[in-house]
């Protein structure tokens, strides 16, 4: 028998050889597979949670940084507030400004509305009536300017001006009488 014949003889013997696996092997395999897949899903979920947490932390950090240097106004735009101003407001007692400002502001708004509803002046000549209209247009601002200042700085200044009236100042004086 040649080598090739021997090889073919052995190959033919073992070709399509099958052995039935033990009964519990199938269930054992699929239980193991399920455990592995479950663990994989858990790891993926944990990974996603970590990514979300990191994202939230970074977002909070960025938001914190922006709040230190900028205040967000009601219309969504950001107004930069100098840090010195923030420090100053901390020292000043809060003053209810809205009550004082509400009345003139509404009046100003009304006057604004009246001005806007006025018909435009005819012609190109700039008459006295136009000057009056301009004055009326300016008036809301003037009214605001004319309001009594109610800031803490003003209050403190007023208190310093009023202080001398309450105290009695005694100055040392030497009176010399000439003969």
């Amino acid at each position: 028998m040649s080598i090739e014949q021997f090889d073919q003889y052995v190959t033919g013997m073992f070709a399509n050889e099958t052995v039935q696996p033990p009964a519990g092997a199938e269930d054992a395999l699929f239980q193991r597979m399920n455990k592995m897949r479950k663990r994989k899903r858990q790891i993926q979920a944990m990974g996603a949670a970590v990514v979300i947490c990191v994202g939230v932390l970074i977002g909070a950090h960025v938001a914190g940084d922006s709040q230190n240097g900028a205040a967000i106004s009601t219309d969504g735009s950001r107004a930069i507030v100098p840090s010195t101003a923030i420090m100053a407001t901390d020292e000043i007692e809060p003053v209810p400004q809205h009550e004082n400002l509400s009345q003139p502001t509404s009046a100003a708004a009304e006057s604004d509305l009246t001005v806007a509803s006025d018909p435009p002046p005819a012609g190109n000549d700039f008459s006295n009536q136009d000057e009056v209209n301009l004055e009326e247009k300016r008036s809301p601002l003037h009214q605001i300017d004319a309001l009594p200042a109610t800031t803490a700085a003003y209050d403190s200044g007023e208190r310093s001006l009023q202080a001398p009236e309450e105290e009695t100042w005694v100055l040392p004086a030497v009176v010399k009488v000439k003969d």
Partner: peptide
């Protein structure tokens, strides 16, 4: 598909086990 996996296993596991024993 879990059912397909089981079917594949049943079809080829005797051959696989035969090789493993060898």
């Amino acid at each position: 598909h879990a059912q397909a996996e089981r079917e594949l296993y049943r079809r080829y596991s005797p051959m696989m086990f035969g090789v493993a024993i060898r």
